[in-house]
Amino acid sequence: MNKSAKGFRRAASMTAMTAVVMAVALTGCTKVDTIAPSSARKDAASVSVKSQGKLGTVDCRKAKCVALTFDAGPSENSPRLLDILKEEKVPATFFLLGKNHMAEHPELVKRMAAEGHEVASHTWSHKILTDITPEEAREELRKPNEAIEKLIGHKPTLMRPPQGRTNPDVNKISREEGLSEVLWSVTAKDYTTDDSDLIKKRVIDQTGRDGIILLHDIYKGTVPAVPGIIAELKKRGYVFVTVPQLLAPGKAEPGKVYRP
């Protein structure tokens, strides 16, 4: 089977896996508390400077910030996406899968880190963490941590649970593995359409200050929509940052769940 066919099969598989429950994805965390970026920034005032995150060149306490995030890569579409982000000088946060993704595209993981993007975990094989045993969930989180560390020299500090489904047990395991959980406020549902114009419209219509935008570069229509999304949001005064930059000077704490 050629690479194109393999990529299509994986995308189709991910679509089926994701679409079943994605419509209620954000309800998967109703039993746990979530922390808004603005709250993380505000709470930073009560902790030592040493414990605060790095502000970098953007202070989201003043700027109208938004975080562009991509799940389930890397894929054969990632090089074009990285080219676009580099050209537009836009940092992103990549929540990567291990099996059949990082394992097959290690050079793209290295490139993401080298070009200033935040490399994070989306588990090893996209198992729903609330539906498996604690031991299995720990393995789903530990394996990508180790793979990422081997590729870029340090473990991720952020993870996104598949379908946004989490609970106190997942929180506990995440804390023990040194991971904070990051959900989202904007979804284009790009697993349901290849229409790039529609994907762009959905993102633009939902985005507000401190928004965390969920996209998937594994789908055909997504990457072509990105230039238009960036252009329109810049026009509206938004500044693109990574998730850690969105929280700064607050800092994501392992075991906590972040969502606008």
Rank of each mutant, 00 (worst) to 15 (best):
K3C: 04
S4T: 14
S13N: 12
A16S: 11
T18K: 06
T18I: 15
A19G: 04
A19L: 12
V21I: 05
M22C: 08
A23L: 10
A25R: 04
G28C: 07
A36Y: 11
S48Y: 06
S51C: 11
G53P: 08
K62W: 01
V66W: 05
F70R: 04
F70S: 02
S78R: 05
L81C: 09
L85E: 03
F94D: 03
F95Y: 15
G98D: 07
P106I: 10
L108A: 06
E118I: 03
V119M: 05
V119D: 03
I128L: 12
L129M: 13
T130K: 07
D131C: 04
I132A: 05
E136P: 00
A137R: 01
A137K: 01
E140G: 05
L141S: 08
R142V: 15
P144V: 09
E149M: 09
E149K: 15
G153I: 13
K155E: 11
Q163N: 14
R165K: 13
D169I: 15
I173N: 01
G178K: 03
L183G: 07
W184P: 06
K189C: 01
D190S: 07
I204H: 05
T207V: 14
I213S: 05
I213Y: 02
D217N: 15
P224Y: 09
A231D: 13
A231V: 03
E232Q: 14
R236Q: 15
V243Y: 01
K251A: 06
E253G: 00
G255P: 01
G255M: 02
Y258T: 04
